[in-house]
Design a protein around this nucleic acid. Structure first.
Lengths: 208, 208
DNA sequence: TATTATATCGACATTGGTGTCGTTTTGCAA
DNA sequence: TTGCAAAACGACACCAATGTCGATATAATA
């Protein structure tokens, strides 16, 4: 009755594998990475790898969840505490900490798209995708709604619909950028234009 | 020196295979369809199939090209002849013949997304994707620019950037709709909202 | 009708990836 | 130290898909 190694070590090993796997997924994409790729990148044997993850899907989902956790703690949000400035909050949510449009995209985004698109006929995967979508929509919608109720935003448009439009924009940009270089897509310029649009739709005139 | 069958027949057979293949791609998606699926759907033997198409990629590209041809001849455009009404033209281009937002999406769209995303590390495929993107952008940009020059549209925003934004929207919508049912995505409502936005950006007040 | 070019067929060898399982190694506790 | 539970290993059997190739069937010609 003695585990070979401490739980610490196990957690660490698992984390290491996930990190190595992440870079593999970034390089090859979801569909084209194989467990062998991961084995090599993580310096782990076949059997060793399968001890931690049942298969590629399991591994990728673990990485996805990990990502959610990280985001959650990074932006453990000033939340509604930073009151009144819902616009700033919205911008931070869209573009990260500095809150202004840039050309930085999540390097894992293309793999995520693959994962959900190619898995759209898989019940489990689709359900999971829906959950994430709803989650994303509700986060944006909540902020917008709060802003509208506080009077900071115009209530001309439905908050939920605006939230979905934001997601559509983000997804569309991620998709195009997954295939094309950012200059061709004009990521930054498109983002700025979209922000302009949001300002109109929400009647915000902030110049920051 | 006599072919076994007429060229007519060969064309026809090829077309039949492509049609059958299309429905297979729609059902299973690009990555998950196999040549065997196509063989069965098209009632053709392995050897027979490979006589017409070297592999799955070749087959899918043929379908893509076919699609472009069809679109081109469908909308062999009143073009700049239907002059002055660039807005109508724009709407037709986005939403098809009736020119108003609906929830109809190209059923092959999800497979197309797969094809380009999963092939983003393939030189040939990426180049092809870029060509199609540029093509799409230039079509929209041209109409917008014409409208701006004719005075029908405001020239406040760069036509190229607006064109890219349209593509981003369309792609984003296709992506989300590939995974989620259209009610969840609110395809029609989002489209209407986007059209509103375009009206603002182009200073169009048409109520049609 | 006989001939022949070739369209079509389907069996096959090959490939590449998966998940398992018996063996070996190793860190911790006694 | 020593014993052991389980972590790590890697060979292996399996499977699904691919592209090829020699054999066969058949439509046009002569």
């Amino acid at each position: 009755m003695s585990p070979r190694v401490s739980k610490e070590h196990l957690k660490q090993r698992r984390a290491d594998i996930m990190e190595a796997a992440t870079s593999v997924f970034i390089e090859h994409g979801y569909e084209h990475t194989t467990m062998k790729h991961v084995m090599e990148a993580a310096n782990v044997s076949r059997g060793g790898l399968y001890q931690y993850f049942a298969n590629k899907e399991d591994l990728f989902e673990a990485i996805l969840e990990e990502g959610i956790n990280q985001e959650a703690e990074e932006s453990d949000f000033s939340l509604e505490e930073s009151a009144s400035q819902y616009w700033t909050l919205l911008m931070k949510l869209m573009f990260g900490e500095d809150g202004s449009p840039d050309a930085n995209m999540d390097p894992l985004a293309p793999s995520k798209l693959e994962f959900f698109i190619t898995g759209r006929n898989n019940e489990r995967r689709r359900t999971y995708g829906e959950k994430r979508y709803e989650m994303g929509v509700s986060i944006y919608a909540e902020i917008i709604k709060s802003g509208q109720e506080s009077g900071e935003f115009s209530a001309r448009y439905d908050s939920e619909l605006l939230a979905k439009s934001i997601i559509t924009f983000v997804d569309g940009l991620a998709l195009d950028h997954a295939i094309l270089p950012e200059e061709k897509v004009s990521v930054k310029e498109q983002s700025e234009l979209f922000v302009d649009y949001l300002k109109m739709a929400l009647d915000v005139s902030s110049s920051s």
